[in-house]
Design a binder for these strands. Structure first.
Length: 822
DNA sequence: CGGACGAGGATTTTT
DNA sequence: TCCTCGTCCG
């Protein structure tokens, strides 16, 4: 038996060697899931299974690449290469290319990304004269996506009375029509969106049994990674392929299902035993990644979920340090405290920044953290935001390539017909479009085959269009002779994209040029790589790699894969979603607040809350050695100061594993209130009211007023009157913030000592009884002032105090230590 | 046609 | 706050 088998634990070994049976491998966080998967495949190959009978499906290119690499390390690359291994999307994109004729698509069909879909939808909404109020492009796109993921085709949609009724209720009765035109237009353009890759595969397998049979015979073994994240379309594909003979093995962790908003169905893994009654269940429960503290704490959270496959994760590692929980007054202070702690951690680990990650629920939280890290000279890299392939210059260049390779691609055409600006505006494009529609041809075919006059174009417009045609024709002619990257470079040059950025001197233009260069290099790298793979496998590539092949590949790429050397040894900042599958020695989870984590949007349903809890579970289990959780009592959100309470999740962690660096009562009371506040409505009213009132006041407020005040709920007319003092508008927010910041730095500088300024545990009623409008109070810094307004806020009081010369301040009762003078 | 400016909207996002 | 979209004007 091979060495690698010996190194597995019993549960892992069982899961690896029982490859002849349909299996569900429930793999807890850090339980060596990838290892089991790769060993299982390697073992199968060793046992004589032919690689081309194996289908291994992942969700990310990265996961597929990693697996391929690891199997190659165990066995010959030649074998590994022949495994059908890749993402759902790339594998079925490939199958769809081979079978495209059945569905009436060109085999070189284009793959639309999210932006393409959205643009097309927007255009259709405009064409159909649907008002924007009830037909918001994003909503339409996501509803179409939802339909496709649930295998509802346009005609099925049309025939579904309850869906139609739903649309009528939502006042968008023409949605079905819109969906139909969208699908039709995609088909005409020779394009599939991401969801189509799965939907069309299902249609193919449904309508062409002989095609299905072919692949059923092809794949004897089907392995699916991250099964908890499969959607209905993916589920059905797997089920269909497995119907005849294939042994299905799915690997996943229901506790880490965090993509329901993209159609993932946790039910797929929960009900796997029903679908495959013969399946054996293997549970990998030993966590090799984290300390006992972290594993136990994570267990104590996930226990609260009703729907799950019960398992007991355990660690035999060190107990490890407790999970620290810290409180900050503002998001800025939170960021500084985190940064300071990271500085200390890095010092203790001789500057191993890459062992550290800061995770957060929303990308918007990254800014404050970034600033704090910069101020402490801590190197960091940030994920999220625009990916390489979403940048304008890249999308433009790719659109040129698309059009050169697929003349049907109207979306690409529209994108570049006037990019860089060449004087072909909406009017001209409109005329081309109506001529094309009349003839039933694509936009490119129209300008390519029709004379300008036939499109109602004369003078300058016609001439410009003719020039454009000439450019594209020239480029098309190069297809036969130029290598892939030469053609790419020619396209970049002759399209004028490179020229237009070279003319500008801005840093943006420079970076755009660099990106273009990188894209062209990537074409070359791709071709070289393909060649290398062939050589390694002992085959010779019959034909040189074409740009078509690269394009088909690139549409499904994201830039998560390539880590540049200069990005090493830096602290990682990313959303919790982005961190799935990763691990770090030290993890900081910021923004542990109600309505943020768990997100406000998720609180409407119990399922939503459970998913947030799983998300938190994912976040915590990224940590190998230590975790620190933080929350802020106030936070800038969309330019407005908002106030929040600590996340209920903090209260859900078994207290034995926590090291609270503030008074425990703050957690208990807050989360207790939250839990008693039954029903889904509790989370919604407060912010709504907040925003509405804030906006209402804004109208009456001079411009430049700080949002801190604009957001305030106004119970007392005094407030409004005092807002007349526009003389010192700007000092109001910076001042309290500056105060908090100083306090924060001091608190962290004192290292592990409890935070200064932690409020005395005091019932809010008592506080309310203690203060009244008109009372005089003394503040340690601002001196003596008079209370002009009191608002109740999240169980605390927000005070407006006029300190005379020192200005008018807004303070939180709990935070500001005020002496009452009477 | 295209730049400039203001209003409005803003979870998470493997493909 | 910050990004995107639509409108207005040169």
């Amino acid at each position: 038996m091979s060495d690698y088998i010996q190194t597995l634990n019993d549960a892992q070994r069982e899961a690896v060697t029982h490859y002849q049976e349909p299996s569900l491998i429930v793999a807890g966080a850090g339980s060596g899931k990838t290892r089991v998967l790769t060993c299982r495949i390697a073992y199968m190959l060793e046992q004589g299974v032919a690689p081309y009978h194996i289908l291994a499906l992942t969700f990310t290119n990265k996961a597929a690449a990693e697996m391929r690499e690891r199997i190659s390390a165990l066995l010959s690359p030649h074998l590994t290469r022949q495994i059908w291994m890749g993402t759902f999307h790339s594998i079925f994109a490939r199958i769809l290319r081979a079978e495209s004729e059945h569905l009436g698509y060109p085999s070189s069909y284009t793959i639309y990304d999210a932006a393409d879909s959205r643009n097309l939808i927007k255009m259709l909404i405009r064409e159909m004269n649907l008002n924007d109020e009830n037909y918001k492009p994003n909503e339409i796109v996501s509803r179409i996506s939802l339909a496709k993921n649930n295998l509802i085709t346009p005609s099925a949609y049309e025939a579904n009375a309850s869906l139609l009724a739903e649309d009528r209720e939502r006042r968008r009765p023409q949605f079905a029509e819109l969906y139909k035109s969208y699908a039709l237009r995609c088909h005409q353009n020779g394009a599939m969106d991401f969801d189509d890759l799965l939907l069309q595969t299902n249609i193919l397998f449904r309508d062409y049994p002989e095609v299905l049979a072919k692949y059923q015979q092809q794949f004897h073994y089907i392995l699916v990674d991250e099964y908890q994240d499969t959607n209905s379309a993916q589920y059905l594909i797997v089920k269909r392929l497995a119907e005849r003979q294939a042994k299905v093995c799915v690997v996943g962790d229901d506790a880490q299902s965090i993509y329901s908003f993209r159609g993932a169905k946790i039910e797929n893994i929960l009900r796997f035993k029903n679908d495959f009654p013969a399946a054996k269940v293997f549970k990998l429960e030993q966590n090799y990644r984290s300390t006992q503290t972290i594993v136990n704490a994570a267990n104590s959270i996930i226990e609260k979920n009703a729907r799950q496959i019960r398992k007991h994760s355990f660690s035999t590692g060190e107990m490890g340090e407790k999970i620290r929980v810290i409180k900050a007054y503002t998001d800025k202070e939170e960021a500084l405290m985190v940064a300071n702690d990271i500085a200390a951690t890095a010092r203790a680990t001789s500057g191993a920044y890459d062992a550290i990650a800061i995770l957060y629920r929303t990308n918007a939280q990254s800014r404050a953290l970034e600033e704090a890290l910069r101020s402490r000279n801590i190197p960091y890299k940030i994920f999220g935001g625009l990916s390489f392939y979403q940048r304008k210059e890249i999308k433009d260049l790719v659109a040129y390539i698309r059009l050169v390779l697929n003349p049907q691609d109207d979306e690409a055409f529209r994108r570049i017909i006037n990019t860089p600006a060449r004087g072909i505006g909406d009017v001209t494009v409109g005329r081309i479009a109506s001529a094309a529609a009349q003839q039933g041809i694509s936009l490119w075919e129209a300008i390519h085959t029709l004379a300008p006059e036939q499109m109602d174009l004369r003078g300058a417009a016609g001439k410009k269009v003719t020039e454009f045609v000439a450019t594209i024709v020239q480029l098309s002619a190069l297809r036969g002779t130029a290598s892939a990257h030469e053609l790419g470079l020619e396209i970049a040059l002759r399209s004028g994209i490179i020229g237009c950025y070279k003319m500008q001197q801005s840093p943006e233009a420079t970076s755009a040029l660099e990106n273009i260069e990188e894209l062209i290099n990537s074409i070359r790298a791709y071709a070289d790589e393909q060649e290398r793979i062939s050589n390694e496998a002992g085959e010779s590539l019959q034909a040189p790699v074409t740009l078509d092949q690269w394009l088909q590949n690139v549409a499904l790429l994201t830039d998560m894969d390539n880590d540049k050397p200069e990005e090493r040894n830096k602290v990682t900042l990313m959303t919790v979603h982005g961190a799935k599958g990763l691990e770090f020695d030290h993890v900081y989870i910021a923004g542990m607040e109600e309505n943020l984590f768990p997100s406000l949007m998720s609180l409407g349903t119990p399922e939503g809350l459970e998913e947030e809890r799983r998300l938190f579970y994912v976040a915590l289990t990224r940590a190998k050695q230590s975790a620190m959780l933080s929350f802020a009592e106030s936070r800038f959100k969309w330019g407005e100061m908002t106030f929040s309470r600590p996340s209920r999740f903090l209260g859900e962690i078994d207290g034995r594993y926590l090291d609270l660096q503030f008074d425990e009562s703050e957690l208990e009371t807050d989360s207790a209130e939250e839990l008693n506040d039954a029903g889904p409505s509790f989370a919604i009213p407060r912010p709504r009211a907040l925003r509405r009132e804030g906006q209402g006041e804004e109208e009456r407020t001079p411009k430049g007023r700080m949002p801190y005040q604009g957001a305030a709920r106004t119970y007392y007319p005094e407030r409004e009157r005092s807002s007349r003092e526009g003389a010192t508008p700007k000092v109001q927010v910076p001042t309290p913030e500056g105060r908090f910041r100083r306090m924060g730095v001091r608190a962290v500088a004192e290292d592990s000592a409890p935070l200064q300024g932690a409020p005395e545990p005091q019932a809010s009623q008592e506080i309310a009884g203690g203060l009244q409008v008109g009372m005089r109070v003394q503040h340690e810094k601002f001196g003596v002032g008079e209370i002009t307004a009191i608002e109740l806020w999240n169980g605390d009081q927000k005070l407006s105090v006029d300190f005379g010369a020192a200005g008018r301040k807004t303070l939180l009762r709990r935070i500001a230590r005020l002496r009452i003078l009477g």
